[in-house]
Amino acid sequence: MTPNRYINYFLIIVLITLVIYFGRKVYREIFPGDYPMVTPTAESKFIFGENEIIVKLSATTKNGNIIVYTYGPDGNFYGMLKPIKDLSITIRKGDNADFMVQVYGREIGETSFMKKMDRYIRKVGMYDLLIEAVEKKWNYGVQNCLYPICTRCTDGCKSVVSTSNLPLVMSVMDNGEIKPVFRKGRCPRCGKCIIWCPSGVIQKEKQPWEK
C-alpha cells in the first residue's frame, strides 16, 4: 500500500467525519411573522390558614397546572407545580418544593431539581417558606410560565438564532416571577417560541386592529 493511498483513505475518513459533524447543525429558519408577546399570569389571592394555604385564581391555565413560587432566605427562587381545581390551589404542610433557581438581581443562575425518582434529595417545605416570605416581605406568588420546568421557548430560539446573544431571555420580574423577555430588534419573528410554548404563555402579539 503506497503512502498516497493512505492519505486518500485518510482524507475520505476525515470528510465523512466532517459531514456527520456539520450535518448535525440545525438549519437557520427565518421568516417574517408576528412578534411574540408574554401573557400575564392570572390574578391570585393567598388565604393563609393554620395548616394550609388556599390560593384563589382569576383564571385557569392551558394545562391545568401552575407554578407556586416563593423566595427563600438565600434569595433564591423556590417553586412547585400544583394542579388547579375549581380555580384554586391548596398548599398543605408537607408539600415540598420541586426546584430551586439561583437568582442574581434580574439574572438567573443554575437550577436544581429537588427530587430523584420518588424521593426528595432536599426537602424545602413550601408552606413554611411561604409563611416566612409573608413575614419577611419576600416575593411570592404564582406564575403561568413553567420555567424552569420548561425551556421550550429558549430552545426554539436557540435552534433558529445561532448567536449566543438571544432575542429571548428568561428574566426576573418585579414581583419575582421568572418569565421570557423579548428584545424586538433582534427577534427574527420566526414564531417558533409561540408554537413551541406548551403553556400558551407566549402568544402572537396582537395588532392594534385586533385589540
Binding site: N63, L146, R152, P198, S199
Partner: peptide
C-alpha cells in the same frame, strides 16, 4: 386529597405531560 403519582398508564401519562420536550 392531593396525591403524588407513582405509576400510570402510558396514555394517561401522555395526558399529564406538559410537553416541555426536555
Amino acid at each position: 386529597t392531593e396525591i403524588i403519582t407513582y405509576k400510570m398508564k402510558a396514555k394517561d401519562a401522555a395526558k399529564v405531560c406538559i410537553e416541555c420536550a426536555a
